[in-house]
Design a protein around this nucleic acid. Sequence first.
DNA 1: TTGTACGCGTTATCAG
DNA 2: CTGATAACGCGTACAA
Lengths: 373, 373
Amino acid sequence: MNIHDLAKHLNISIGTVSRALNGRSDVSAETRKRVLDAARKLGYSPNQSGRSLRRGSTGMVGFMVIANRSRAVRGEAFFMTVFDGVQSVLAKHNLDLVIYYCGDEQSPETYVQRIVERGLVDGLIVSQTTRVDHRIDYLLQQNLPFIAFGRSQSGGDHSWIDLDFEGVAEESIDLLYRLGHRRIAVATTAGDVNYGFIYAEACRAALKRRGLELDDDLIIREAISEAGGYRVGERLLAMKQRPTGVVSVENSLAIGLYSKLKEAGVEPGRDIAVVGFDETPTFGLFLQPSLTRFRLALVDLGRWLGEHMAELIEAKRSGKAAPVAHKIWPLEMVPGASTIPLLSAAGGGETVALRPETKPARRVRRASETAGS
Amino acid sequence: MNIHDLAKHLNISIGTVSRALNGRSDVSAETRKRVLDAARKLGYSPNQSGRSLRRGSTGMVGFMVIANRSRAVRGEAFFMTVFDGVQSVLAKHNLDLVIYYCGDEQSPETYVQRIVERGLVDGLIVSQTTRVDHRIDYLLQQNLPFIAFGRSQSGGDHSWIDLDFEGVAEESIDLLYRLGHRRIAVATTAGDVNYGFIYAEACRAALKRRGLELDDDLIIREAISEAGGYRVGERLLAMKQRPTGVVSVENSLAIGLYSKLKEAGVEPGRDIAVVGFDETPTFGLFLQPSLTRFRLALVDLGRWLGEHMAELIEAKRSGKAAPVAHKIWPLEMVPGASTIPLLSAAGGGETVALRPETKPARRVRRASETAGS
DNA sequence: TTGTACGCGTTATCAG
DNA sequence: CTGATAACGCGTACAA
């Protein structure tokens, strides 16, 4: 079934069919109705290849996810939730979201290159950025709208969005400091993914502001998984001078950590303070004692991606300059029972008002819509 | 950059360029090398729309995931792992995997229809099947290779693969029965997704084989999430006659359940037996006491999907009949400390050899490659 | 308001 | 072994 068949069926020309389907004004109301009805009845939609070839654009936005690179391994709905937001916005702009999953065997750089060269998409979102990320260098020299989900040291000025690792680190360290903790470990991700470094360095800076030095031995890099968190626990417990608190860049780390600690009779909250990271609807809400963590509006983050991508594509279409945007996405602390005042704090922390909770927070919060730089 | 530009650059015709790039034999070795080198250097790949239009096929296989339908909520580790397997196999057949994420606002039926009508893919995998699933009815009457990931009552004979819910139910019930449990609750998913019903019915059958009736009150349907599991716990504890054991169709249910039980001072393993479902690398491995669960080779399942899809596409290409396959994917029990013999069992269970473990099983097992029917 | 005809980029056929 | 050319399905400029 193609446009010719449909035209023949209706005894009109393909030009008229095309105009009717594309909502052009120069077609009679009656003809339009006949065409639309017939198209629905016969199950006709314009062939995408023909349309793309003619139009020079595909109407597709790609979202590239990389296998086994940090967040992709997590047992939760991180990206799926983001897709939700992206999808809902793109739909309003008549754009389709397609997800490209870059498997283990192929290099992300080659993968991006193929997507671009073959003209598969009108715009691309690349996630899981590394410190040096050649995908970004490549995309910058192409003329394709793209957004990086995650910061990188690569490339020149381009649009990106990233979680507020600095803010989380500052709040996490601040909390532990006020509770009297002075020896604090940082659990972060191994591998080259950029946020592992950003988080560790932000923790270092937060400690420094309080006159504390972050010993390199206290930065524990492990794979982002419960198993990784378990190993974090092993390494913590093996230290000659055990830290009194741990902050971690990911909740799955905290989960594995809890497990190892409990095995060793070390009770989170009582014997050691633990701070997690992002809260998702189905993951880590039910740790006991409840985990101090941060609320993250992932659907809204996806919406931001969608909105900005639509802008970029529209700007390119109309020949305008690309509106580059940078966005740091805020998170909001949800205090739990895993961070309570030290009983025998050497420095003696001040009393902090906290509302530990054992049930999941249900309130949905729209992230503030502060403009990107 | 298109094929004309490249041909002009090399002072040869576009026909020769095309043949060289497509590995046809009727082109001299020297010319081929020149073409391939230039293509790489200039960053040229054939435009996908042009190629698809001419060839009548896209070389793409779609994998449709539905937002907020059961597994998708926690789904990433689940589906991403499957993608990995699919991807690796398709690559060998020069097919690309693209994931279509069907958001909340659009109907899965319309979504599938659009994908097919617009000719986006050469084959489609649809997941999260419902009991009545019009996508399957639709796909059957199209001439597009497709596989359902999940059984359905819809449609005629078509290829599908599904987890061995019956086997898991049988083994779970059998274990609890042998441990002396006689009042057993079944935690399953709410909503129309088919496997929730399959699992519950399989449990009912397994109980019946042992002379037990599954009271409808003991089938607890909740959303697949930790929060859902928490509510399962609430409902269990509210029962006048509390079950001594629970089996559940999903690990996240078990996690939330643990949480509620512990809150109430009911210790899993000691006071109530709990059986989970699939084990994933990053999810629920570290519950304490360790959860009895089932090992699932998801990457291999993905490989099966990829292999069979390649077969279907090849068959269609060569005009052969579609080789329909049905596959029940096996899982292997990993005993944990959440199922131990009842101290005060009324019926008194026999002693069962179990090897409770507290650490995650690391062994990677290739699922048996039994042929589909 | 509608029909005709061209070209988007590619691959395949056919002639040389 | 290579070059010229037709066709894939569509949207649109232009003619009617």
